[in-house]
Amino acid sequence: MSGMDESLRPEKSRITIFNEPINCQFCSNDVFTPYEVIVNVEQPGIGVRHVRYVAICQYCGKAKHFGDPSYYDVEKDNYIWALNQSLLSIKKYKIKIIFFVGKRKQEKVTIFLNSLIQNFKAEVENIKDYKGEVLLQIKFSNSNDKQAVRSMIMGCARRLKINVKEITIK
């Protein structure tokens, strides 16, 4: 969507203002779900309202507030559209992770698996243990690209002190 006289859709998307991307101040992610917010800009009871937006980061949940700075350029006799929304398609991923765990092996595997299920709403296809090396196969849908998915999985593994040998994303 670009240069259109309509509200931002409340769907996962990337948003730009004057072609500058909106990034989360907390996690630097750029995937948001925007919502319209009606604000009373005058004294209560007068009834003057103004439309603003709040966009929720799809990675960390932090809210970003912004307005629509679009304006009419008198000199060029043209309306300058500021907001642009690129809707994201949901991709389906199949992931194979081979990793090593040290002490408390079963507990770490369970915590790691539960973390992946919670963060990605993943479905487990297969899990096998080969003498300290664990093979985990999961599938899920997500709007992030492969590199972002890989980073999120590696961050989860790092927090649990799990050594990942290989990640295959298809």
Rank of each mutant, 00 (worst) to 15 (best):
N40W: 02
V101N: 00
N84T: 07
V101Y: 03
K105G: 15
K105T: 07
K92S: 02
W81L: 10
I80R: 15
K105P: 03
E42S: 15
P69H: 09
L88C: 00
I46F: 11
P34L: 10
P69N: 07
T33C: 11
N78H: 15
V124P: 00
I56N: 10
V51K: 15
K108H: 14
D73A: 04
R52V: 06
K105Y: 14
T110K: 03
C57H: 04
I117K: 10
K96Q: 01
G67D: 15
P34R: 07
I80L: 13
K62D: 09
V31D: 07
Y93Q: 02
I90D: 06
N114L: 02
K64L: 15
C60A: 11
D77K: 00
F120A: 05
F66R: 06
V39L: 08
S86L: 08
S115H: 09
V48Q: 12
A122I: 07
V51M: 14
N119Y: 13
A122E: 05
T110M: 08
K91E: 08
I38Q: 01
A63N: 14
P44W: 01
K128L: 08
A55D: 00
K105H: 15
K64T: 15
I98P: 04
C57M: 07
V41Y: 10
T33M: 12
I111M: 03
K62I: 11
F99D: 04
E125W: 09
L87Y: 07
N126D: 09
E36T: 13
F120K: 07
K94C: 05
E123M: 14
K128Y: 06
N114S: 03
K76I: 02
Y93K: 08
F99C: 06
N78E: 15
F32R: 02
N84G: 06
E42I: 11
F112Y: 08
K108M: 10
Q85E: 12
E123V: 12
L113R: 02
F32D: 03
L116I: 10
Y72W: 12
I95W: 06
P44E: 02
K128R: 06
